[in-house]
Design a binder for these strands. Sequence first.
DNA 1: TTTATTATGTGATAACATAACAAAATCCTA
DNA 2: TAGGATTTTGTTATGTTATCACATAATAAA
Lengths: 169, 169
Amino acid sequence: MLNSGLTPAKSLSIEVAERICAERGARFTPLRRTALEVLLEFNGPVSAYDFLPALAQRLGRRLAPPTAYRALGFLLEQGFICRIETRNAFTLATHLEDRNAGVFFLCDHCGATVEVDADGITELLAGRAAALGFEVGRRIVELQGICADCRYTTAAVEGQSQVVRGRRA
Amino acid sequence: MLNSGLTPAKSLSIEVAERICAERGARFTPLRRTALEVLLEFNGPVSAYDFLPALAQRLGRRLAPPTAYRALGFLLEQGFICRIETRNAFTLATHLEDRNAGVFFLCDHCGATVEVDADGITELLAGRAAALGFEVGRRIVELQGICADCRYTTAAVEGQSQVVRGRRA
DNA sequence: TTTATTATGTGATAACATAACAAAATCCTA
DNA sequence: TAGGATTTTGTTATGTTATCACATAATAAA
């Protein structure tokens, strides 16, 4: 399943996030902390509307969508999580240092997502941008397709495939 | 405004689309043809819900969302248009030959969108994919930032910026 | 023709996201 | 530390994007 069952972001934890926020003067409030805890537990991409009840349950109170989106917005701003555009989902960042530097491989078959470092790609894109006089902020690179596991283990079951997370291409 | 006012996709026209569909055995129905005409006229990215009334007007009848989405889906399948993920918008493809090979530069300030060829990037990503055993289908590369025009002509008006099309990062 | 397949119409609803304003918590500074 | 400013969170409502499910119509295949 292309690594989606492994623990992502070994580098990110509540403690690390707390320290980073302190350094930046960002307020790591109970809500935001709990939001990050929930995402750490999800161990994979989660939609805002799956995240919402999980966060609410952990806090022991009802929450409305804006609260969830604000918490996600904060975590995005801090670079603790990434948004997967083609799935409207959020997942832990695996690279706290160089934000938006990741490339996402997204399996259309099993829903697995893997973020890898984009060495080389970043530079290439920077070159294109420079040629256009374009100042790059956020980079989105998402590759949809079939992961190794699905290619080798389910080649015979074409047609009855199901996606666990996310939508098909 | 980074080219967004120029005519995109010189290579794509109703006639070309018709020929391609004929070659492929795809049915270029009146609805689909009209949908492409509407997109050719838009001359830039358009949301499904802006496209819907434009298509309805041109056909002289009321349409419901699924009809618009189906037409867009067909044009996407044929590679005549691209979806800009970070804007939930659709725009003419500028590369009929190598689908999904484009890189989009999206200005957060004026909304301009430019698609450029992704030579080199495609190969680099293919290399990463091969290393993972991942079979790539669709590639999404979108770079958000500030276009040359906005950098040079509106550097002094920070804070009162407005986006014409699309949302801010 | 008849039958199958593909495309479109239609109403409802699902899924994703934000506006607008009120209340509470925190920060700042005198 | 009291008081005002700022930031965060609560809450209601609504805006935006996308699809389901089933009916009808058009086209293709036999």
